[in-house]
Simulated scan of single mutants.
Amino acid sequence: MSAGRFPTDVYASRLRAAAAAAADAGLAGLVITPGYDLRYLVGSRAQTFERLTALVLPASGDPTIVVPRLELAALKESAVPELGLAVRDWVDGDDPYALVGQALGGGTPTTAVTDSMPALHLLPLADVLGAVPVLATDVLRRLRMIKDAAEIDALRKAGAAIDRVHARVPDFLRPGRTEADVAADIAEAIVAEGHSEVAFIIVGSGPHGADPHHECSDRELRAGDVVVVDIGGPYEPGYNSDSTRTYSIGEPDREVARRYAVLQRAQQAAVAAVKPGVTAEQVDAAARDVLAAEGLAEAFVHRTGHGIGLSVHEEPYIVAGNALPLEAGMAFSVEPGIYFPGEWGARIEDIVIVTADGAEAVNTRPHELVVVPV
Rank of each mutant, 00 (worst) to 15 (best):
F6I: 09
F6P: 00
D9L: 11
V10L: 07
S13M: 02
A25M: 07
G26H: 09
G29K: 05
V31W: 04
P34M: 06
Y36E: 06
Y40P: 01
V42F: 00
G43Q: 14
G43L: 06
R45C: 02
T48K: 05
L52W: 08
L55C: 06
S60F: 00
S60M: 03
G61D: 02
G61R: 01
T64F: 01
P68L: 09
R69G: 13
L70F: 10
E71C: 09
A73Q: 09
K76N: 12
S78V: 06
S78P: 02
A79K: 03
A79D: 10
V80C: 03
P81A: 03
P81Q: 08
G84S: 11
L85A: 01
A86N: 09
V87R: 02
V87C: 03
R88F: 01
G93W: 03
G93N: 07
V100T: 12
Q102K: 09
A103W: 02
G105M: 08
T108N: 13
T108V: 15
P109D: 14
T111Y: 04
A112V: 08
H121M: 02
L123G: 07
P124N: 13
P124Q: 11
D127I: 01
L129F: 01
A131M: 03
V134S: 14
L135Q: 10
L140T: 00
K147S: 05
K147E: 06
A150D: 12
E151A: 12
L155A: 08
L155F: 11
R156G: 06
A158K: 00
I162A: 11
I162T: 12
A167N: 05
L173K: 04
R174K: 14
R177M: 13
A180C: 01
V182T: 01
A183Y: 06
A184D: 15
I186Y: 12
E188V: 00
E193L: 01
G194C: 06
S196M: 12
F200W: 10
I201L: 05
P212D: 14
P212A: 09
H213G: 07
E215G: 09
E215I: 14
A223Y: 05
D225R: 04
V226Y: 06
V229K: 09
D230A: 15
G233S: 06
Y235H: 14
G238H: 12
S241D: 04
Y247M: 08
P252T: 08
P252F: 08
E255D: 10
E255F: 04
A257R: 12
R259E: 15
Y260D: 03
Q264A: 12
R265S: 14
A269F: 14
A270D: 13
A272L: 04
A273G: 04
V274W: 04
K275T: 01
P276G: 02
P276L: 00
V278C: 07
T279G: 05
D284E: 15
A287W: 09
R288K: 13
V290R: 15
L291G: 13
A292D: 14
A299R: 11
V301L: 09
H302Y: 15
T304K: 11
H306A: 03
S311T: 04
H313L: 07
E314D: 06
E315G: 11
P316S: 10
A320G: 11
G321M: 08
G321A: 11
A323H: 13
L324Y: 04
P325Q: 04
E327Y: 00
G329C: 08
A331M: 11
I338N: 05
P341L: 03
A346L: 10
D350H: 14
V352P: 06
A359K: 04
N363V: 05
T364W: 10
R365A: 14
V371H: 07
V372H: 13
